[in-house]
Design a protein around this nucleic acid. Structure first.
Lengths: 205, 205
DNA sequence: GTCTATATTGTGATAGAC
DNA sequence: GTCTATCACAATATAGAC
């Protein structure tokens, strides 16, 4: 009796994570995942029955990695500006640690949008009240009169885009130097916040 | 002698465009492209030799669809704020007409980043002088002191993201109603410009 | 140029020994 | 549980008739 009971399963998941997130469902090969895990192809089926099942496991895990931050943003009682600052910092931090997940999730949801309905069953409910809160702050003269959805989507865009377009941006603007680009992404934790704040908050004289 | 000489080739390209852009290189099937074109699978190889060659044709065309706008942005002699306004309007317009190309190009370049070096050989050269012009306007006190690359990337993010994340955004914020989302995208031609202007331009008292 | 038929290789999945 | 060997079918590509 050793701790290898579930060791193979973990090795497989780890390998599948890497390959699926890098190549996507269609681009990934079971053989490549087996090689990466250092085990045999048949074992993949022994533990996960099919490629699709294995993919589901990886995708769900990747998707959920980002949900807690969004829940936090939607549910807390802080004023919007403080929520925003927290969200940007935390969200970009998670993406720096998992830089390929955003592109992966985006692509797979584009290929299979019906999956999204399933995943969001228990989560979208709080969205309307959050938009209402934002609208209230607009009515109170704290924030400029802009469609709250535009604000939300702009915030997400500024956080996520530098990760999903990484190859292009890194090549065009940073001479394809990963180190420099990582430093740039780090800066964005504050620069994105300042950018949005300047864009939507009304200056008090 | 009829005008069908190149008709088959055009039918194939049109079908390949649709299937490749929708499913990507790995997800697309030659059979599906043939069916879509209403011709036989063998004809695809007669005209384009291989799946990869056919894909190259589609990808290059898609990629180049967005280059003229970027060239315009980089090369014209207008002050930055006017360039920006023009760019956003034109760029979003093209994406509304070709909503799936941004995600397609992004995904394929992520899968195959070395392709980008080839494609950009004659284009990146003007980037440094453009960033210099932007830096000058910062020095002149027209624009807030922000890293010019952050400004560029933020502008691109705000334009492109709503298209690459369409399935998610449309579902979460718009009850999956395409009509409403299209109207929303239309609004962004002005709202994105106002957003950026508020964020980076210094108000003269 | 366009088709049918077929070759060839790739890939997910299973059988069965150990 | 883990492996080797193999199946079954999918997918790209080609040969050859018309």
């Amino acid at each position: 009796m050793n701790d290898n009971q579930t060791n193979a399963e973990q090795l497989i998941l780890q390998a599948a994570r890497k390959i699926f997130i890098e190549k996507g469902m269609e681009g990934a090969r079971m053989q490549e995942i087996a090689d990466e895990a250092g085990i045999n192809k048949a074992l993949l089926h022994y533990y996960f029955r099919s490629k699709d099942k294995l993919f589901q496991a990886v995708f769900l895990e990747a998707f959920q990695k980002f949900l807690p931050q969004i829940e936090m943003l939607l549910k807390s009682e802080l004023p919007f500006i403080q929520k925003l600052e927290l969200f940007i910092k935390n969200y970009i931090s998670i993406m720096i640690e998992n830089p390929y997940i955003p592109g992966f999730v985006l692509h797979e949801l584009t290929q299979n949008p019906q999956r999204l309905a399933e995943l969001l069953k228990n989560h979208v409910v709080v969205m309307p009240e959050f938009l209402t809160q934002l609208q209230n702050e607009i009515n109170n003269g704290v924030i400029k009169p802009v469609d709250p959805r535009q604000i939300m989507i702009n915030s997400l865009a500024l956080c996520i885009f530098p990760f999903v377009a990484r190859p292009i941006i890194q090549t065009v603007f940073f001479g394809n130097d990963a180190e420099t680009y990582n430093a740039f992404l780090e800066q964005r934790k504050t620069s994105v916040y300042n950018f949005i704040k300047s864009a939507i908050f009304i200056e008090k004289p």
